[in-house]
Design a protein around this nucleic acid. Sequence first.
DNA 1: ACATTCATGTAAGTAGTTACATGATTCT
DNA 2: AGAATCATGTAACTACTTACATGAATGT
Lengths: 172, 172
Amino acid sequence: MSLRYALLGMLAECPASGYDLIRQFKSSLAYAWSGTQSQIYTELSALAEVGLIAVSDAGPRGRKEYTISDTGLTELRRWLTETKPKPLARNEKLLRVFFLGVLSKKQAESYLNELAMIAAAQAAELSELRESIDWPDDEYSRYGRIALEWGERYNAMNEEWARWAIEQMPRH
Amino acid sequence: MSLRYALLGMLAECPASGYDLIRQFKSSLAYAWSGTQSQIYTELSALAEVGLIAVSDAGPRGRKEYTISDTGLTELRRWLTETKPKPLARNEKLLRVFFLGVLSKKQAESYLNELAMIAAAQAAELSELRESIDWPDDEYSRYGRIALEWGERYNAMNEEWARWAIEQMPRH
DNA sequence: ACATTCATGTAAGTAGTTACATGATTCT
DNA sequence: AGAATCATGTAACTACTTACATGAATGT
């Protein structure tokens, strides 16, 4: 159901097509929510059918630009203020850590090292992203910057933790 | 598919019933993976059918204790060493941050404050958990402690970040 | 006797993924 | 002319959730 609100939220900023939204998912929203092409087009049709968004323009190659409606914006605000976010429940990288006891110490250490490297690579990606965006001085980019900061802190934390974890391993 | 490996991983430590595993999901594994009662019983039947686990004992009230098989353990090791963990893709708390621009500053700040409080509460829960467990000196608890440390760092990071975010908001 | 906990299972529905399918427009 | 990109949609499948259903054993 969150995909629905992710789409509403993006359309609250500016009108966009399904194709545009798929790219936005991949760039800015990637570490907060993911959605496949097929799911996004299906959900956009459903949102239009219930009147939370509407086709506001048509472009070449069957492009349909959607705009959020008043009821859509109201529904987005209701979601933000009257419902509670679900705690996160799926972290495959961490899940694997619990079971490293079935591997050799060398293999376990190599996995932890891989986690450190993934975190470092993602940190590099994010700092590149931060610099590639020229942040306008508006509401949307304030919160975009705050979310990006979360990503940077998350990656830093993961890398430090993975390096700490390697140190906890007995010498072999 | 990860649920399958979560179950295999828990059974690699010691034999257990579906009921036991459900409780383990709620206590130690909760922030790494979640699974409902219905999903867990269904998956255990499927795992038994393909021979990755087997019923090793029967108890009162139809209790069935499962034990991991050799092929099950091999499959768990294969998953850990030969497949890559999927990056995390769903964080509803963070998703909402992107869209706080549609709320008033007061409402947005109140949301960020709520995030700080959730993180603090979870940190308290985890430190209680750390103290309630008497950590045996074996492989499984080494990695359990490492995973718990991740949770503590994650919560600390979230709380600090949320407080930092509130400071970024303009005075009103 | 009654409540609680232990213990498992199934059915129906929703959300998400993978694969297939098509075609217009733009760039080189 | 051919490749790349833009652009949308549907079908089949897998994963996950919610709700329903049952009943034995244990504690008070």
